[in-house]
Amino acid sequence: MQLLIRFFSFILIILLIGLYFNKEDRSHQQQHITKQKIKHAKKVNLKNMSAKNQTQDIKKRRQPAGTKTHKQSREIIGQHKGSNKNTIPMNNKVNHKWKELYKKAFFQNLDKSNQVKDFKITQKRSLIKVKQGSGQYLEHVLISYTKPNGQPFSFEALIDSQTGSVVQSWNQTRYEIKKRYKIKNASQYNYQK
């Protein structure tokens, strides 16, 4: 028994030592990489460059601004008079997976017997809705699909860009003859106080 304890203790110590050095190594590598980055940074004397080259050079050197900001590509609606959409404080963020979040919530209520086909989310507009001085990112979409009974259906919706939840839906398809789900023998469901 004592031998076993000593053996496992030894193994444990070896492992701990190994972990320690591994961490040091990574840290060292990072420092090495960082140092390398710094080493490769190029100093440029702007005074000796033409304005055009300066601009081009600055563009090359500075960190990319990224693709168009969320705000720039968005239409502004609501109480937006006098608001600058680039500076307005936002009370939500854009989750790039908002479509997946919406889809998950939509299909949450559907099981194998209630599946839809050709489900499609068509993005119509990306919006910033301004209310009382702050903005909310929203997506205006067209949702279309074929119901289990084969009937095509569509509607428009406003989706929160962060949570993927529906703010409002409208313009639902109107069928002339509509078969509804009926709860039969309803009198059995009476609830007494």
Binding site: A105, F106, Q108, N109, L110, D111, N114, V116, I143, K147, P148, F153, F155, A157, S165, V166, Q168, S169, Q172, R180, Y181
Partner: peptide, 11 residues
């Protein structure tokens, strides 16, 4: 399911 098909918010 029916309300979901009709585009209603019933999450």
């Amino acid at each position: 399911a029916e309300l979901t098909f009709e585009g209603e918010n019933v999450s």
